[in-house]
């Protein structure tokens, strides 16, 4: 059972990590705690459902359309309608603005797609594969592969592209970046676009493993936990935090009791934060409330 539980913990942890990476990127560049990140996951799943199942487009076309729409959504809605009008406001007003936007998105989803839960099929075979003592479905393997690939691509993007470098510079010091000629508003827009696409990929990958409904964004809070556990603002931290959270949740369900998961997460966090008060990879006291 141990190996089964561990493997699944890594799979779920990859999803947490993917969302947490988008969440962290957005925080680093715009100092916004993205409280509607779960809703980005939701719209990713709904876009795919619409393009692939309802419109009956080929999977890859539907997927491309989904990611494009998610990016456009990130720019038009998060960046233009919430982030920019509240740019000079503090962190909490932006959180409240995003929560307002999340409520609007959930309400619109209920009106457009209905309040029902949908079953989003997997593009791959759903027959389980047996590897030694472990059962796994192809979708779960895909999750791990895509997560690793995306993290690799992001690394290359941040290290070797102009935009990526500008984004890194902005997250270190917005003022210094401006002085060096970085166009901050392009960086913000790019961050919201990429961050929202990452969350939408989370929704596309996770959709076939659960039921898609307007409240599925609730799992967004886990990415917050993952990001903080790993050290707020640290991308490697978000990845490690996500996987650590996924594995520990599964171990608790396997060897203690599933209804103690939240309490066990509490104990885990207190332990980690007692040893390192700014998370696993966090730099001391950068954030300001």
């Amino acid at each position: 059972m141990l190996s089964q539980v561990l493997v699944n913990g890594v799979v779920i942890g990859c999803i947490y990590a993917l969302i947490a990476v988008g969440f962290t990127m957005i925080y680093n560049a715009t100092e916004t705690v993205h409280f509607a990140v779960g809703e980005s996951v939701m719209i990713g799943a709904y876009f795919l459902l619409t393009f692939w199942i309802v419109w009956d487009l080929p999977y890859l076309v539907a997927l491309a359309l989904t990611l494009l729409s998610a990016g456009a959504f990130g720019y038009a809605v998060y960046d233009r309608m919430v982030s920019r009008p509240l740019m000079s406001a503090g962190l909490l007003p932006r959180v409240v603005g995003l929560m307002g936007m999340a409520a609007i998105m959930k309400g619109l989803t209920r009106i457009i797609w209905g309040a029902d839960a949908y079953h989003l099929p997997s593009a791959l075979s759903t027959d389980p594969v047996r590897i030694g003592p472990i059962f796994i479905v192809p979708q779960e393997i895909l999750i791990v592969v895509v997560t690793v690939a995306i993290i690799g691509l992001l690394f290359l993007f941040f290290q070797h592209t102009k935009l990526g470098t500008a984004m890194r510079a902005t997250s270190q010091s917005r003022r210094a970046a401006t002085l060096m000629g970085v166009n901050i508003s392009v960086v913000f827009a790019a961050t919201w676009v990429i961050g929202t696409i990452l969350s939408a990929i989370g929704g596309v990958l996770l959709g076939p493993l659960l039921l898609v409904d307007p409240d599925m964004g609730e799992l967004g809070i886990k990415s917050f936990t993952a990001a903080v556990l790993g050290g707020f603002g640290s991308l490697p931290g978000a990845i490690v935090g996500g996987i650590l959270l996924g594995v520990s949740e599964n171990l608790v369900a396997g060897y203690l009791r599933a209804d103690w998961q939240n309490a066990a997460t509490f104990v885990l966090m207190i332990t980690v934060l007692a040893i390192r008060p700014t998370g696993l990879f966090g730099k001391p006291d950068k954030a300001r409330v």
Binding site: M1, V5, E249
Partner: peptide, 20 residues
């Protein structure tokens, strides 16, 4: 006896235990 959170994203441990 097993429990599951309404917002859970996996039931792997529960089913593994039931099977065992």
């Amino acid at each position: 006896e097993e429990t599951i959170d309404p917002g859970a994203v996996s039931a792997v441990a529960q089913i593994a235990k039931i099977k065992e």
